[in-house]
């Protein structure tokens, strides 16, 4: 049932790099719960595009510096 997301992120590292922003502070800036930020960091939840952009903006980085999508060996067609 729980398909792991293929979207990975560097949120945790970037939080520390950007002045040690806590999960709670990031959550507040982005408009989600702290638990959701935690779930995203752990790869347990893939945020919507809007939330992904807001996270990147809150960290002061472009989207692809924060999130990465790996097209694994299972490519269709």
């Amino acid at each position: 049932m729980a398909k792991p997301t293929e979207v990975t992120n560097r949120i945790r590292a970037l939080r520390f790099a950007a002045g040690e922003i806590t999960q709670g502070e990031l959550a507040e800036r982005v408009g989600v719960t702290r638990q959701t930020i935690n779930a995203i960091e752990l790869g347990k939840y893939s945020p919507s595009l809007e939330v992904a952009f807001r996270i990147a903006q809150a960290l002061g980085r472009p989207l692809e510096a924060v999130f990465e999508y790996s097209d694994g060996p299972s490519s269709k067609g």
Binding site: V32, T33, T36, Y45, P47, V51
Partner: peptide
Amino acid sequence: KEANDHDERD
């Protein structure tokens, strides 16, 4: 603090 939280993941 969290009682009204209902974000996209919820």
